[in-house]
Write a protein that binds this DNA or RNA. Structure first.
Ligand SMILES: [Mn+2]
Ligand SMILES: [Mn+2]
Ligand SMILES: [Zn+2]
Ligand SMILES: [Zn+2]
Lengths: 126, 126
DNA sequence: AAATTTATTGCAATTAAGTTGCATTAACAA
DNA sequence: TTGTTAATGCAACTTAATTGCAATAAATTT
């Protein structure tokens, strides 16, 4: 079940994502909004925004949950299946638009695949 | 630091991996060896076996840690970078030998990439 | 505008995978 | 056989995330 009522919490969280385009981890948002929004609220609103196709989520190498804006998803058509890039130096994570083709595997039906690329980001490369 | 002394714990854990070729999650091993090996021991031995290039690890979609036998890794040359396939029906996870090429990303240096493919496995496809 | 409904929130407690500290045990070299 | 210290078991801890529940507040109805 997604969002039904427009509340300040939703506004506050969405603002964080429009500020800049990079992904933000759930814990980071909890810290960043401490005193403003309760931890539970943060997790619950993020979950609903994902349900509605406004955000998409993924786990980084440590199993930490990250969220980022969807491009053109809806509740029915939730299709943000692209790689994510995490900088090993500064920790920044963002969505990558490159297309990675997963070859067919014999006797297996592929439904979805997630790709986490790690390396040095554009700010840390020099 | 890897394994220094040959102990029954190491033997017991390695046996689980030689039984069949699929990956096994750490929690599954803790459960499976309950009463035989302590939880902490399981985690610690797995960690050491990975250090030595005997096992490699990765996280599934829920952030759960899985381990599988390495093919030809050593302590120095630890290079098991291949996709993993998790069945959405039965939960089984195994290593996949297909080669997925990650295209270069502008201004970013790729160090490593991990690919988790999800779908229906060869046992569950019918 | 007031009353009603119920989605949303905050708070405290809980869960669960994984880790740490420390005393005890045992591999193995001397 | 003895001494060194790696490995183990146990309890306590850590931490991201979840749950139950009472209080609050959107939004719909009267
Ligand atoms: Mn993304
Ligand atoms: Mn593997
Ligand atoms: Zn960076
Ligand atoms: Zn299966």
């Amino acid at each position: 079940m997604g969002i039904i009522r427009k509340t300040p919490s939703i506004e506050v969280l969405l603002t964080e994502f429009t500020r800049n385009g990079t992904a933000i981890s759930a814990i980071e948002l909890v810290k960043r909004l401490d005193g403003k929004l309760n931890k539970t609220t943060v997790y619950r609103v993020l979950d609903k925004l994902e349900d509605d196709g406004i955000l998409h989520s993924f786990l980084d190498k440590k199993g930490i949950k990250w969220y980022a804006k969807c491009n053109s998803c809806t509740h029915d058509k939730h299709f943000d299946s692209h790689p994510h890039f995490q900088c090993l130096n500064c920790g920044k994570v963002d969505c990558v638009t490159v297309d990675v083709s997963i070859p067919k595997i014999p006797n297996r039906e592929i439904v979805i695949s997630q790709i986490l690329i790690q390396g040095t980001c554009e700010n840390c490369i020099n």
